[in-house]
């Protein structure tokens, strides 16, 4: 596996506190970078604004997932109770829509069920996980992102990326241990 060929992923800079990371994010945003990210052990309130990240579209996806659930439940009950297998029970109308209140519980449950799974799979689709590996894990220091260290990573794919300029930029905004992350090809 030891090959000399390496691919540059980007620059990784460490920050000690949420406060520092927040302001660093504002600087990176204002410098016009586009392919970069912050890494933190927990979500930081307001960092989306500091980074200029737009609101997630997930709610809309979930709304339609939920609507699909309601429709499924309604059709399931309509078809089985009215067409395939009408039963005269509970002194309720057998055919027609006037047993609707009795269908609400299942309609509600399937709405929630479909919405929840849409949330799960929609989330995974939006964030592109799971994946087996990621170049950023090549950095040994990066493992501390899940403990107490905050990182900013500017990727080499960014049009404004430059080997020298980005490094000094990250140092200027307070980044410590600025590291060039490269992984094996």
């Amino acid at each position: 596996m030891s090959t000399t060929l390496k691919r540059v992923h980007g620059y990784l800079a460490e920050f000690e506190s949420v406060h520092d990371l927040y302001h660093a994010a504002e600087h990176v945003r204002d410098a016009g970078y586009s392919r970069w990210d912050c890494h933190s052990p927990f979500p930081i309130h307001g960092l989306d604004v500091a980074m200029g990240v737009k609101r997630s579209k997930l709610p809309w996806i979930v709304f339609f997932g939920g609507a699909a659930g309601t429709t499924t439940a309604f059709l399931l009950q309509w078809i089985t109770q009215n067409i395939i297998y009408p039963t005269v029970v509970q002194a309720k109308p057998t055919v027609g829509v006037w047993s609707l209140p009795a269908w609400f519980p299942v309609m509600f449950e399937l709405t929630v069920l479909f919405s929840a799974f849409t949330t799960l799979f929609g989330l995974l689709a939006l964030i592109g996980l799971p994946r087996l590996n990621h170049p950023i894990f090549a950095s040994k220091r990066f493992a501390k992102f899940s403990d107490d260290t905050f990182f900013v990573c500017i990727e080499a794919r960014d049009p404004k990326f430059s080997q020298e300029g980005t490094k000094s930029f990250l140092e200027k905004i307070g980044g410590k241990n600025v590291e060039l992350v490269e992984d094996d090809i």
Binding site: S40, P43, L129
Partner: peptide
Amino acid sequence: LGWRGANRHWSHYETAYMLLAALSTPL
């Protein structure tokens, strides 16, 4: 799942968490 604490992930993640909370409450 290869979680790397990226804020672009956290952003969707928090929305998802909020949605699940909002679904679980009536549930």
